[in-house]
Amino acid sequence: MSTVEYLLPTRGIVASSTSTTELTARASADVVGLARRAESLGYDGLWVGDSVLAKPRFEPLVTLGTVAATTDSVELGTAVYLPVLRHPVHVAHMTATLDQLSGGRLSLGVGVGVRPPEREEMRQLGVDYERRGAMLNEALTVVSRLWEGTAIDHAGDHYRVEDAGIGFEPARKPPIYVASAAFEPSEGFPRQIQRRLIEHGDGWLPIAMPPEEYAAGRTYIAELLEGTDRPNDAITPGYYLDVVVAESEATAIERAREFYRDYYGEQVAYRSEQALSRAEIRKRGAFGTVDAVEERVAEYLDAGVERFVVRFPAGDQRRQLRAFSSVAETVL
């Protein structure tokens, strides 16, 4: 049975608040309040995004710590965390702490950042943008070893530690979900993502991928694992699904288009007419009436999605939460 998990609007509240007072109020209402609301509606998890400079938002692990303290049992996740913006020792320490304090609820979705503002963000933080994929893979090796709780030595191309240990293990080793936006059925994934999936992936979390392409990606991952000692079903198939429920598909897509323009600002990838076309928006998820959204979600289920991380690219988060909960009850 597939799970449905909700992405909290930790960027949206920062981007749209006009004062510190307003932001403080919305932190309570639209992070803590929405987290509690989603749990009460039966959502299985709560996720947050990440950025330091490129897309200002609340720090993800601190946010999830607060969410953990105000919820009972929902899963917690990052969609997606950018480990290369921090040293892997810090990443291991923070994530193990959060997992302990939440009782073993953390899933770590990871990525590298692909847009121009993220390139500038990495430059300012001293990260080589062109080598970020290899850096992430090595960072995950260090983090996974540190999660074992004993001191380690590591001398790699990007990180060196000697007799380093955080002193404890997470309550449950957080499953690592590998994000991807690039997949070509005839060519597969880029080389670094292939390595990340094989060596570190407990789950797959793509975005902007229509159901038929998603199914091809699942098949490709199974083929990747055939040459390893891991079973073909070792990687849980997730999907980052954008949803807007409205009276028509046209209305839903226009609301999503407006959201993307506001959310991504001057980022070239979301300023082009092609990227904002109906076809390009539609492949990101499910848009339209309840019946249309149910049909689209069913297509992703048929393609093999087992874990939906749902973002509502619209302003009325509470209405969308409620509407989609009925979709989940019907389809899932």
Rank of each mutant, 00 (worst) to 15 (best):
A151M: 03
V127C: 10
I193R: 00
E213Y: 14
D153L: 04
E187V: 13
G149I: 01
H154R: 00
E138S: 03
T219Y: 09
A171H: 10
D157I: 06
M135E: 08
V161Y: 06
R132A: 06
V161I: 05
R160T: 09
P185S: 05
E118S: 12
E184H: 10
T219N: 14
V178I: 11
E148I: 06
I166P: 00
A155M: 05
P174I: 01
R132P: 07
A155G: 11
I193H: 00
R191H: 08
I166F: 02
G149M: 03
G111Y: 06
R196F: 03
H154C: 02
E162T: 13
P211L: 14
G188K: 02
G133N: 05
V127M: 10
F183H: 02
R119T: 15
K173G: 03
P185F: 04
R145G: 06
G126W: 11
V127W: 09
R115F: 14
E213Q: 15
R195E: 03
A164M: 14
T150M: 09
L140F: 04
P185C: 06
E226H: 15
R191K: 13
A179K: 00
I221K: 09
V143A: 04
R195C: 03
G201S: 09
G217V: 07
G149P: 01
P190Q: 04
I176D: 00
P174A: 09
V143W: 02
W204L: 10
A208P: 11
D128A: 13
E138C: 03
A179Y: 04
E184F: 12
S144K: 07
E187T: 14
G201F: 07
G217C: 12
I207P: 07
I152M: 04
D202E: 12
G133R: 07
P117F: 12
L146S: 00
R119E: 08
F183K: 04
Y214E: 12
L136P: 05
R119I: 15
E169P: 01
G111P: 03
S186F: 08
I166D: 00
E184Q: 09
R195K: 13
D157Y: 05
V161Q: 05
P211K: 08
V143Q: 02
E184V: 14
W147A: 05
R196I: 06
V143L: 04
A171M: 10
F189M: 02
E148L: 08
I198Q: 02
G167C: 04
R160F: 11
Y129W: 13
Y214Q: 10
A182F: 10
P170C: 01
Q192G: 07
Q124V: 15
A222N: 14
R191Y: 06
A208N: 13
